[in-house]
Design a protein around this nucleic acid. Structure first.
Lengths: 333, 333
DNA sequence: GCCACGCTCTAGAACGTTCTAGAGTCGGTG
DNA sequence: CACCGACTCTAGAACGTTCTAGAGCGTGGC
């Protein structure tokens, strides 16, 4: 592209085709009000001049933006799976997605701020870590849907998995296999960590395993799982539930080197059913979040709020399901 | 947010502050032409009314968009590292990034198309898989920078790593350690695969190891590494270079289970120095792409082209460097 | 005391689109 | 033959911002 070369506009197409700007607009939008003949002629000219509509001007004029902002963390593989689902869901509803990433050097506030200026009609936040007060303030300005995090505030919509139940599923599964000494590696400062930890504790108590309660501080990355594995070594349990699959994968990789075979010496359960966990060599038993349902619901919720519908049920909690693979088995004799 | 509630505009702020719209605009842009007193007063009112500038209107009017579109693949961890770098680089130059993801159900054409309507000033494509002809057509419309892929076309800017050299480094390292039976697992239909394969072949020939040339079809995911590992089993080499870290990680995980210890029985070299490869339990010897330099250059190139500068050197090829970690060692006596 | 200058501010056009209101044409109907 | 309705098309305003041109006004130099 040479600099200074202006791009083709409706006016250019109109002039070339010998019709009015409004008519070209009608044709481009595929709106009623143009004859088949002109329609074809205009389309032909548009194609020849390589016309591309300017969504900025379009949205400016029409007011509604059909654009949903999404804030995601570049470091979380699970959120990539969610992104994929969100694109599908938004596509079905005729919406576009505007992505803004959180990176190690770009925080959530910045990511949100950049979307605010883009006049998104709504915001979907994946596992937001910012305080409730800020989320609430944000929701004054536009519909906000938080995914994978509970938010105790009536103005913020929430679509999340029942994490308490997720960990109950995991613990129940292990108990059924015969385990009693079951530890939990939590998510450290991750926002969802508290609820999963709580789910673990409740489940253990229900099985009368209070004395075996053991929580190790972890995190959301592979390295956290590796660290936690080392910490478990002094007195290894026969099973462990882990905050997420990534951390579990780190653990899975390091346990054999530390002399513990999986699932022979120790069973491992992850969380998220991240796409890599189903790979043959990882084959991780894990708690699956229902991404399809969650993304569909999150987008639907956003769209309803954009339309201004009165929605009563602010929080949707989706039940998880346990995916049993190769990293869990009965404890040794 | 209640539906139908219009958001605050410059006009609202102007009316409230008792000044003209133009003056508010001046204040908001921090442009010269307003007294300190009014500046403060206007800012105060803007804050009170919770004013957010409308970037659509702003860009529509001012023509230049200070927005660079980026197309990335949601499935490639390496590209997430690149994204992080791009955000940094763009930030320094005062540009914003508009992301568009390629997912399993959203192809590159769609991803590019959505950015085209957004009036980005330039496009940066991470490892684009579309044919050169399409890239060329695209570059008629706007500056296009391709990263991590060679493009034989004078209109498309390229910032990439010298992959031939990268594989030479890997092979040289292995040869120095004493290996001769060195195999290569390629990237299958990935666009960068050809050059890395070629680098491997050239390096092997230079060392007079023609008879040991062995290329196994692989891919870009963990599962490809797993598959390739199985294929190597019938006649295991003492070392293998792999298309990328993700594939190498899959291989690393499965080799011990197949009875081959790393690096005892077999050395493994990856590619990309993806963030997980430096984790203690993976500790992968790999060829590092210089992300900082590449992202800085890609953004700089895009910005120069937006400014219309005459740029002679269309392709920048960055030398990689070898990062030696724990997955390579001398072959067994 | 006048003019030039700098500073602060304003009016109005412009960006590329959509939308509203209405103008022109044509065939059919009373 | 006048009229109506359907259809096709057009003119011009509007969206929220930036930009250009210039107005008002105090200040300082001569």
């Amino acid at each position: 592209m040479r600099a200074g070369e202006r791009r083709t506009t409706l006016a250019d197409v109109a002039a070339e085709a010998g019709v009015s700007v409004a008519l070209v607009s009608i044709v481009m939008r595929d709106a009623p009000g143009a004859s088949a003949a002109t329609r074809q002629r205009v389309l032909e000219v548009a194609r020849r001049l390589d016309y591309q509509p300017d969504s900025r001007a379009r949205l400016l004029r029409s007011g509604e933006s059909r654009l949903i902002g999404v804030v995601f963390g570049v470091q979380h593989p699970f959120q990539h799976d969610v992104l994929t689902g969100l694109y599908d869901a938004a596509d079905k509803q005729g919406y576009e997605l505007a992505l803004s990433a959180v990176t190690p050097r770009r925080d959530e506030r910045t990511a949100i701020g950049s979307l605010l200026q883009d006049r998104c009609a709504a915001l979907i936040l994946l596992g937001p870590q910012i305080p409730v007060a800020e989320l609430a303030a944000l929701s004054d300005r536009m519909p906000v849907v938080a995914m994978m995090r509970g938010v105790r505030h009536r103005a913020v919509d929430v679509v999340r998995t029942d994490d308490v139940r997720g960990l109950r599923l995991a613990v129940d599964h292990l108990v059924t296999l015969g385990h009693t000494r079951i530890a939990h590696v939590d998510g450290g400062r991750m926002i969802a960590s508290a609820e999963r930890r709580q789910g673990y504790q409740e489940a253990m108590r229900r099985h009368g395993l209070d004395e075996h309660l053991r929580v190790v501080v972890g995190g959301s990355g592979e390295e956290d799982g590796v660290r936690a594995a080392r910490e478990l070594l002094d007195d290894p349990p026969t099973a462990v539930t882990v905050f997420n699959d990534l951390s579990a994968a780190g653990m899975l990789d390091v346990l054999p080197r530390l002399g513990l075979s999986v699932p022979g010496d120790i069973s491992v359960v992850g969380y998220d059913d991240t796409s890599f966990s189903r790979l043959a060599h990882i084959d991780l038993t894990t708690v699956a979040q229902d991404i399809d349902t969650m993304t569909t619901l999150a987008v639907a919720r956003a769209v309803e709020r954009i339309a201004g519908a009165g929605i009563t049920n602010r929080e949707v909690v989706i039940p998880p399901r346990l995916v049993i693979r190769g990293t869990t088995a009965a404890p040794r004799g």
